[in-house]
Design a protein around this nucleic acid. Sequence first.
DNA 1: TCCTATGTTGTATG
DNA 2: ACATACAACATAGG
Length: 274
Amino acid sequence: MPELAEVAYFCRQWNVGIGKPIQSVHLHHEKRVFRESDPCALKAGLTGARLRQALTHGKQMCFVFTGGSLPGGANAWLGVHLGMTGRLFAEPTPFAPDPHDHLVLKTAKMALVFRDPRLFGRIRFAVGREPPAFWRGLPPEVHSPSFSRSLMEAHLRRRGRSPIKAVLLDQACFPGVGNWMADEILWQTSIHPARLAASLSPDEVGRLYRVSRHICRVALRTIGLDFRDPPASWLFAHRWRDGGRCPKSGELLVRETIAGRTTCFAPTRQRAES
DNA sequence: TCCTATGTTGTATG
DNA sequence: ACATACAACATAGG
């Protein structure tokens, strides 16, 4: 389930562990979940260390640790990506891990859990003073000041022959935007998801810029805070099953595969020709 | 049984 | 070299 705001919500679930020493580290399915990092180094580096920061960037998370057996001045950097079915939560100890719990960090009172049945998520680990490669050079977040209209226009040019839906899903262009957010942005801007990125008019580009930033901000203030639903006026509540109706026009919504993903849109509001 | 699923990535193709 | 399309990954639920 996780896109920008869901990731922010899950990240905050580990805040209860901030400042507390990690007493034990439980790992499971490490060959796949830790496919690019060394799980033994993770276990050794985090045992006895304290969580200092819980950060997100788009769909990526990074948890920063210090102390324990880590060299003085060095941090441990724990990168988490939730994939399609991953989530983070905290439970009081004692906590018995489920077969889908691939990483459990136990403090005296709480277990910080990464659970992912489908194993599309991943965990990275590095030790060092500076942020590791996986946490450097990330593209500007859509709602941040460094995400400018000219940057977005450059993305649209470079991906000009792709459907706009595919460009919105590209994490190098719109980090954090996933399938439901892309549909929401296109519905609120009245742009058909199959339109080629280079075919958007200046007015449509302007709407895309403003609406994508607005949707990111509102999603972070609702889902991102306490998982409450975004505004009822959004497409969000109507897009998940066949038979839904457009909350603006009342017309029947269409669900079809575009850019390889199920895409929901209102065909009269979002026309294929501009 | 078959289909779908809020994601990414490796590989083939243009 | 560069961009695009799609199968593959692994599992649960309708």
